[in-house]
Computed example of a mutant assay.
Amino acid sequence: WLPLREPAAEEAVRSFLEAVRAGDVGAALALAGESDGSERFLVAEALDDRWEVVQVAQVAYTETPRGATAEVYAEIEAHDGTRLGHRYRVGLEGGDPVVRNALARTEHIPEGFGHLELNGYSADPGEESHVLLLPGVYELYESQPATLDLGVYPVLVLGDQFIELGGEHATTWLPQPWPQLSEEGRRALDEALRARLDACAERAPADGCPFAPPPGDERIDIPADATWEITAYPQVTAAYMYLPGSTERSFELFTTEPGSVEVEAVIVEEDGGERRTRLNCGISPDGVHAEFDMAGGVTLTPGSTAAEHCGSMVEVE
């Protein structure tokens, strides 16, 4: 014997999932009974329909003096074959069924990303620390510049479960970006650093430039018209840092191989005599901050720990 129609709880879950996949957010939310968090992404523009409903089955049913509750297992499959399952709780306390745990609820951690971008749709969750999501496939931060690799991949979402496409294990949180420089980003950083050092060499001594004698060394006199010649550009690596209030993608530079500059200088001897010589100064741009904008540009600014003078100077033989 088979019933003429599927149980009301199954029908509610199936209708909810099919409404989401069709982009009918209003119909989906009419069946959902949860609204604790930012609702900025409960819109059709944030959805991607590249998934299918593959299973819906009632697996439990209980009755209490307050009414009946059913548990419905649902499973969906993304376009690449990744599957994800979840047990929904459906309230049947008279009237229309309500899918109580219909929406995903994930913590939003800005970490320098003042907005969250899903499937090309971007929004600021506002004061809410949690974001509500409908089931489906989500591409994260597609519009980020080619200079950055965020280390996040598309995810399949169902209930409180998140799994990266092609992944083997689900989690209960949305992957958070932690940017690294792409190959293009490393090239852009290298070009920006060379341009900055070239500009410093042309106007040295200048604020924010490390072309100056070590402080307190009164023996070294560098004429104002002296030419600073860069003999080797430094090699650097960059580590992501979160600057509160910043809308840029900020990195701090660390030297992997120092550079060097040379300059004609005058050395004052102990007896008061002077002699002209050529000095070498090491360049280590530690503490300089690099900010990557959405257009792929790089802006370098000296941080509070960046050097403003040579660490040491030696004579060139």
Rank of each mutant, 00 (worst) to 15 (best):
L4T: 15
A9L: 10
E10D: 03
A12S: 12
D24S: 13
V25K: 03
A28E: 06
E34N: 05
S35E: 15
A44S: 14
W51G: 00
A60S: 14
Y61C: 08
Y61D: 13
P65E: 15
G67W: 14
A68R: 11
A68H: 08
A70C: 05
V72N: 10
A78D: 15
H79V: 11
H79N: 14
D80A: 04
L92T: 07
L92K: 06
G94N: 05
G95L: 03
A102L: 09
E111V: 02
G114N: 09
G114E: 11
L116E: 06
E117L: 08
L118R: 09
Y121A: 07
S122E: 13
G126P: 12
E128R: 09
H130R: 11
V131E: 03
G136L: 04
A146C: 10
A146Y: 11
T147C: 06
D149M: 05
V157F: 15
D160E: 14
D160V: 07
F162L: 06
E184W: 08
A188S: 10
D190Q: 10
P205G: 04
G208V: 08
P214A: 14
D217E: 11
E218F: 05
R219T: 14
D221F: 07
I222N: 04
P223Y: 03
P223F: 07
P223N: 05
D225A: 03
A226P: 04
T227D: 10
E229M: 00
E229K: 10
I230R: 01
A239V: 04
L243I: 07
F254H: 14
F254R: 08
T256R: 01
E257G: 09
P258I: 05
G259T: 02
S260T: 01
E264I: 00
A265V: 02
I267T: 02
V268D: 04
D271P: 02
R278D: 00
G282K: 01
D286A: 06
V288W: 15
F292Q: 08
D293K: 14
M294Y: 13
G296F: 13
T301N: 02
S304Y: 08
A307S: 13
A307C: 03
V314A: 10
E315I: 13
